[in-house]
Design a binder for these strands. Structure first.
Length: 456
RNA sequence: GUGGUUGUAGCUCAGUUGGUUAGAGUAUUGGUUUGUGGUACCGAGGGUCGCGGGUUCGAGCCCCGUCUUCCACCCCA
């Protein structure tokens, strides 16, 4: 019985042309990571549930794919928990492993586990898939690649500066014409909460003001009061919505607003440092913007928060990142400040596709195809194929002596650049009839000439 | 997780108030052309109408469930 082929929701197959484009993105990112001094590592696609759970907030836990215990272990199922409707406890009893949700938490685990083998500050990059049990939507998948660069073991703001430059470099190299790097600082958000007298509600407050763009002031206020933020606190938040102008002017207004908050002032100072250094070093094509509503992202950020948006495209953020002072402490390692960024390769792919910005050269098509005219000719060509391949030129012979038309069509469909036609005449003359599939021109050449021509 | 939306040939889609054998374009394949492709003409193959129930004399079409698609929330790369 034939089964209808399909793949799980939120996942995709990639055809050769797509893989070529994806590799182009990865290698562009990888190259810049290495130029900035990061070394690659890899971690398993799944971790112990205990490593992941509780690190991303309640919402994050819900989106973690859990792996069912195999074999006899399913007998550990806590059926009482199921009867009581305690689904979290029940699922913990049948699952001890989970697919990684991002690359940052596994990295923190990695750092603690291998601390004796690393020298700090430790800079690593990692390009691997992650999984989220989210509802698929435009630019949201259940399996997608993140390209992360992080450094742990230093609280120097020079790294924040480096990461902003790195965003600019990579996205410029990918020819993305218009993008904005948004920067904020968690300490500024803490300062806001402090000024309001609701320091313990910082998370509620930041999530709400993150939506300012979307729901407006009324929407934010509504959400805040629904979540139990007091009237007096709301009044103290209101001046925040009046802040406007360019980054410099907003920053100075913010400085005033946070005058009485020490932590807020510290956030401002950090931000000023980063912006000033980036500004004096200069960027290629990024727009850089202080955005006080930028609060999105994982709730483990403690300092700088980054987010990158491609302008003119309907797509969520394509990159994110920030500083996290305490991530390794849950794994038993204190005083290890880390900062890092993540490129969302799949969203970048979608953006480049939408803007039609992939270079024509990314497709790694076959350079040369030998037409197969029969057994004699085939044997003769096999030697030539081997010789040409030894020069690093991609090359093959059509596998059977079918009609010329069919072989031509195959070459066409595959985007083969050149055709070699060798019949008895060519064998006798010791030449190769080389046909350029794009122009249709053909020319009789010696083997050496073909190799020289195609090597470029 | 909440609300809505979608599913017919490999792909893009028609298919009347429920009524004979479910169509088109494109792709595939054979030929016109046995050493010259991307064009044209002629022919051929290809469909459990997402899946499972139900209503009906009769379901691609109506009802329920389920999976998938896309969208808005939640959240996020």
């Amino acid at each position: 019985m034939a089964q209808k082929p399909s793949i799980p929701k939120g996942t995709r197959d990639f055809l050769p042309a797509e893989v070529a484009k994806r590799n182009y993105i990865y290698s562009t990112i990888r190259k810049s990571f290495e130029v900035y001094g990061f070394s690659p590592i890899e971690t398993p696609s799944f971790e112990l549930s205990s490593t992941l759970l509780g690190k991303y907030g309640e919402e994050g836990d819900r989106l973690i794919f859990k792996i069912l215990n195999s074999g006899e272990k399913v007998k550990k199922a806590d059926l009482d928990a199921l009867k009581e409707g305690n689904l979290a406890r029940f699922s913990n009893s049948i699952s001890e492993k989970a697919l990684r949700y991002d690359l940052t938490v596994p990295f923190a685990r990695f750092v603690v586990q291998h601390q004796n083998d690393l020298s700090f500050p430790f800079k690593r990059y990692q390009i691997q898939p992650v999984w989220r049990a989210d509802r698929p939507q435009h630019g949201r998948y259940q399996e997608f690649y993140q390209c992360d660069a992080d450094v742990v073991g230093s609280d120097s703001l020079l790294y924040e500066v480096d990461f902003v430059l790195l965003f600019d470099e990579v996205l410029s190299n990918l020819n993305i014409p218009d993008f904005t790097i948004k920067i904020n600082n968690r300490k500024i958000l803490s300062g806001i909460a402090e000024i309001c007298g609701e320091a313990d509600k910082i998370f509620t407050i930041t999530v709400a003001i993150d939506k300012l763009d979307k729901v407006g002031i009324e929407g934010v206020v509504k959400e805040l009061s629904e979540k139990g933020v007091s009237e007096t606190a709301l009044e103290k938040i209101m001046p925040l919505f009046d802040i406007s102008g360019n980054t410099d002017s907003r920053l100075s207004q913010m400085k005033e607003y946070l005058a009485k908050s020490e932590i807020g002032q510290e956030g401002i100072r950090e931000l000023e440092f980063v912006l000033e250094k980036v500004n004096s070093l200069g960027v290629k094509s990024a727009k850089i913007e202080f955005d006080v509503t930028l609060a999105r992202g994982l709730n483990y950020y403690t300092g700088a928060i980054f987010e990158v948006k491609a302008n003119g495209v309907k797509m969520g953020s394509i990159c994110g990142g920030g500083r996290y002072d305490d991530l390794t402490s849950v794994f038993g390692m204190k005083d290890m400040s880390g900062v890092g960024i993540s490129f969302g390769a799949d969203r970048i792919y979608d953006v480049i596709t939408e803007l039609d910005l992939f270079p024509d050269t990314v497709d790694n098509n076959l350079e040369l195809l030998f037409v197969n005219f029969g057994e004699n000719e085939q044997n003769y060509c096999l030697t030539l194929v081997k010789e040409i391949r030894s020069h690093g030129i991609s090359c093959e012979i059509y596998p059977s002596a079918v009609k010329m038309k069919k072989q031509m069509k195959y070459a066409n469909d595959r985007g083969v650049k050149n055709l070699a036609l060798i019949g008895q005449n060519e064998i006798d003359a010791n030449t190769i009839l080389l046909k350029n599939m794009e122009t249709g021109e053909q020319k009789s050449m010696l083997l050496e000439e073909v190799i020289t021509l195609l090597k470029n």
